[in-house]
Design a protein around this nucleic acid. Structure first.
Length: 566
RNA sequence: GCGCGCGUAGUUCAGUGGAUAGAACGCCGCCCUCCGGAGGCGGAGGUCGCAGGUUCGAAUCCUGUCGCGCGCACCA
């Protein structure tokens, strides 16, 4: 019996109590689905619900009386072994071992589909994340959003949404000019410009630009007049930086469906069209020689200049055109993942959304993620290119590998600042919980290998009532939660919940694997070499394989591998 | 000054109104004569920053307050 089925049984019990007058409740107040949860305390049964506490007042009765009424009706439900009323009016429900154990087969047969749900079905979601400026490699902050964003995309897809992963390259404007001037300065052996970029990568790219130009039969860019030289470094340097960023992300297991160039919005006339649209809607005005968007009509702190008095588009003009473009490409919801250092943009972005007649918070959703603090010897470390302690995506992958890097960044709630210990990254990598989860998976795989050797096959030897050990009730309950964990992760846009769930599941599996029976003997999945193969072995193998499947499905949602051996 | 986020075990962090607040790491004990010890079992360790409020019930919601971070451009 799954939580959904149990929830349905509870709804039915409520409905029947209302129907025969045992419960004076407006039928409209009967919830379509009753929330059941796993109690913290094992003694509180397999599942619990507080529905009686929530409905008692409206039914004009007290919670315990209502709970007793429901309990009486629930006890006759097939698959339910025991129903208790506890505390102020909780219903604690224990399932028959057979009814609970049936889940093992359900999961094995569902395979990769187990956990998929329809919570976000029918939505086309545009998910923009990372979007780091193409003026340098992606550093630790961007890596966090790469891990979290890609995982969120996977979780949304598993919940039925169509997702477009999108990366916005800010390749228009003064910072790109600074980047180009920095390349030029490096090529000429000059110091980096005051407002420019330093770092070894600048020299590497400058050299690469020069080599590429020469290979194409052009003069070395540094020898050209300043303007032409800068343009030569800009054109090739930005392209090279794009390529490097894309490669780093690809190596990290993150590929975007769309790499969108801000520059294209200006060159295609998309900005003008978007401004014209807003002008038609009456939200544009001219003042002080500039063109403004009246964002204060939609809750922003102040109105925003979109075309500066010098005739150049302000940065926000690109955002306006870009949002419109996403919507015109079919996105129902545009999700933006921004770092905390950009949270000040939320007001104006939402105002843009509203100005187009859309609904902020629905058509546009902004997730603010906190920054990563680097710590060494317990002291915070400021990342600075000058100090040479910039942690890039490649550094991280080189140090701990993709799995550990992705997992360790994706297992935290995005709105919590995290402290990353630099020494831990390079030395004690086994502290990463990813190994705990992966080890559990490889252990299930080892059991499968040994099962084949011992001649134990699942076949039809599945007798769920044999899964009657306390550790099996715990494990089955955990497995049953997976689909809802995925759906919640999608709905709340919090993929870290998947990682936390997997850690708990791995723990339950390890406990089950080493559990002792009532006789004090080690319980085993497989028989000893000279022992007869029974349905107990086959049934436990079903459970082992169900765990294996859920661990694999969950790790996939995090973009982390599920190794068969470690 | 205004705005946003965050204060939970020694440390790093979970906990979308429920029962005795959890995990990992670290610390102290146990557990390998056959399925993987990268594991299991047990123990020590907490005024959930503080003060009010809402209610059957608050780490969670509201208000205030303290601390930390970030942001408040015709920069991008």
């Amino acid at each position: 019996m799954t939580p959904d089925e149990l929830s349905g049984a509870l709804s039915a019990a409520l409905a029947s109590a209302v129907a025969d007058g045992a419960l004076a409740l407006d039928p409209a107040a009967v919830p379509a689905s009753v929330h059941v949860e796993r109690p913290r305390q094992r003694e509180h049964g397999d599942w619990a619900t507080n529905v009686a506490l929530q409905l008692a007042k409206r039914a004009g009765t007290n919670p315990r009386a209502l709970a007793e009424e429901l309990a009486a009706r629930l006890r006759s439900t097939p698959g339910i072994k025991q129903v208790d009323v506890a505390g102020p009016g909780f219903l604690n429900i224990t399932l028959d071992a057979a009814a609970a154990g049936e889940l093992a087969r359900t999961i094995v047969e569902a395979g990769q589909e187990y956990g998929r749900n329809q919570a976000e079905a029918g939505k086309h979601i545009n998910l923009e994340f990372v979007s780091a400026n193409p003026t340098g490699p992606i550093h630790i902050g961007g890596v966090r959003w790469a891990a979290v964003g890609d995982s969120l995309a996977r979780v949304l897809e598993a919940s039925g949404a169509r997702v477009t992963r999108e990366y916005y390259f800010n390749d228009h404007g003064t910072q790109i000019d600074r980047f180009a001037r920095s390349l030029l300065a490096a090529a000429r052996g000059e110091a980096a410009p005051e407002d420019g970029y330093g770092g070894a990568y600048i020299h590497e790219i400058a050299d690469a630009v020069t080599a590429a130009a020469v290979a194409d039969g052009e003069p070395a860019p540094a020898t050209l007049p300043d303007d032409a030289a800068q343009e030569a470094f800009r054109a090739r340097g930005v392209t090279m930086m794009f390529a490097e960023i894309k490669k780093s992300l690809h190596d990290f297991g993150v590929d975007f469906d769309v790499y969108f160039h801000e520059d294209s919005l200006h060159e295609s006339g998309a900005v003008e069209r978007a401004v014209a649209r807003l002008r038609g809607l009456g939200h544009i005005f001219e003042a002080d020689g500039a063109t403004w968007l009246r964002t204060t009509d939609f809750g922003d702190d102040k109105d925003r200049v979109i075309v500066k008095s010098d005739g150049n588009a302000a940065y926000i003009a690109g955002d306006i055109a870009y949002y419109l473009d996403k919507r015109e490409r079919g996105a129902d919801e545009a999700i933006y993942m921004l770092g905390a250092d950009h949270h000040g943009y939320v007001g104006r972005m939402m105002a843009i959304c509203a100005a187009f007649g859309d609904t902020p918070g629905v058509n546009m959703q902004i997730l603010i993620g906190q920054l990563v603090n680097l710590v060494k010897d317990g002291e915070p470390v400021r990342m600075s290119k000058r100090a040479g302690n910039v942690i890039t995506i490649d550094d991280l992958v080189d140090a701990v590998g993709v799995d550990a890097a992705r997992y360790s960044l994706a297992r935290f709630a995005a709105d919590s600042t995290i402290d990353l210990d630099l020494d831990l990254l390079t030395s004690q990598k086994n502290e990463n919980p990813v190994y705990y989860v992966q080890y559990a998976h490889s252990r299930t795989a080892a059991v499968d290998r040994n099962a084949a050797d011992r001649g134990v096959a699942r076949a039809d030897g599945f007798e769920p009532s044999l899964l009657d050990h306390p550790s099996e009730a715990v494990l089955l309950g955990r497995l049953a939660e997976f689909p809802r964990i995925v759906a919640e992760s999608a709905a709340l846009r919090e993929p870290h919940r998947v990682a936390r769930y997997l850690e708990a599941l791995a723990g339950d599996y390890h406990s089950w694997y080493q559990a002792k029976g009532a006789d004090g003997q080690q319980r085993r999945v497989l028989p000893y070499p000279d022992e007869q193969v029974t349905d107990t072995h086959r049934t436990r193998l079903w459970l082992n394989d169900a765990v294996r499947q859920v661990l694999a499905n969950g790790l996939d949602l995090l973009g982390v591998s599920a190794p068969e051996r470690m």
